[in-house]
């Protein structure tokens, strides 16, 4: 190895990055060459000077706290719904205007929230009926058995139709309690799925169109027709349940 090679490799040697053969070669050369040996010593002096000198800047004490704060914010922003940015304050006035509009809409918003509560109740009743052996108080596929059974137990007479021919056989009837009143529950079946049809007087003559809602995997249809409120609940898929609802709506004649 000559001086030029040694100079080229001296940094690798100082940093311990050379392979064994090169290492031995350069060590051999340094022993023989005073100039290169001096250069190597200078390298070591410089390197130790940098390493041992006060050149390592430690982070200011409060930087870690600041970073942790901003990380928490970033984590929150990633997890939850987006937090309103700060410039929100600068558009407070338009927001206030929007708030007034929202307040004006509150009466309209209240309606659905009552339905929401009722939907929860209906699902609870539906689930409860399937849990224990209490699906039907009067297990019968005969509408002429089921309908009279309600007489004397309710102060109204629910329309009862067997829909077996259309693929929804009547299983029976049951007394239930929904919306703070006793109601009629008719149970229909579609293959392995049960449908609870809750019926009670609506308290007004005006009809309300069919609405549907899905919750916890259950589908609900509800409507008001001829003074009766109907809620159909099932784990049946939405389209088949809708088919059932249409059958009920077409068949049920007003029963005062």
């Amino acid at each position: 190895m000559n001086c030029k090679d040694a100079q080229n490799l001296i940094n690798g040697y100082v940093d311990g990055e050379l392979d064994l053969v090169r290492n031995l070669e350069i060590e051999h050369h340094l022993q023989e060459c005073a100039l290169c040996s001096q250069g190597y010593k200078n390298h070591q002096v410089l390197r130790n000077g940098i390493k041992t000198g006060p050149f390592y800047f430690k982070a200011p004490v409060d930087l870690q706290r600041r970073i942790q704060l901003s990380l928490r914010k970033a984590a929150k922003a990633e997890a939850g719904p987006r937090v309103l940015p700060k410039w929100w304050l600068t558009i407070a006035a338009p927001m206030a205007a929007a708030a007034i509009v929202v307040l004006a809409l509150v009466p309209f918003l209240r309606g659905p929230s009552a339905d929401d509560l009722l939907a929860g109740e209906v699902i609870s009743s539906h689930v409860r009926s399937l849990m224990a052996t209490h699906l039907a108080d009067v297990p019968s596929s005969d509408q002429h058995t089921v309908k009279p059974w309600f007489a004397g137990k309710l102060n109204f007479s629910p329309p009862v139709e067997d829909l077996a021919r259309q693929g929804f056989p009547l299983i029976g009837g049951r007394l239930d309690y929904v919306d703070n009143r006793p109601v009629a529950a008719l149970i229909y079946q579609r293959q392995k799925h049960f449908i609870n049809l809750f019926i009670w007087p609506s308290g007004s003559d005006s009809d309300v169109g069919t609405k549907t809602v899905s919750r916890q995997g259950y589908n609900l249809f509800y409507w008001t027709k001829s003074g009766m409120t109907y809620w159909a609940a099932s784990d049946l898929n939405n389209s088949e349940l809708q088919e059932f609802v249409q059958l009920v709506q077409n068949q049920t004649s007003p029963t005062p």
Binding site: L35, G39, F55
Partner: peptide
């Protein structure tokens, strides 16, 4: 590099400012 005639480098503690 002036490897042909390297000056002897010796860093005193006063040189730390210079090195920085």
């Amino acid at each position: 590099s002036d490897a042909s005639n390297p000056a002897t480098l010796a860093l005193q503690s006063a040189d730390q400012q210079i090195l920085r």
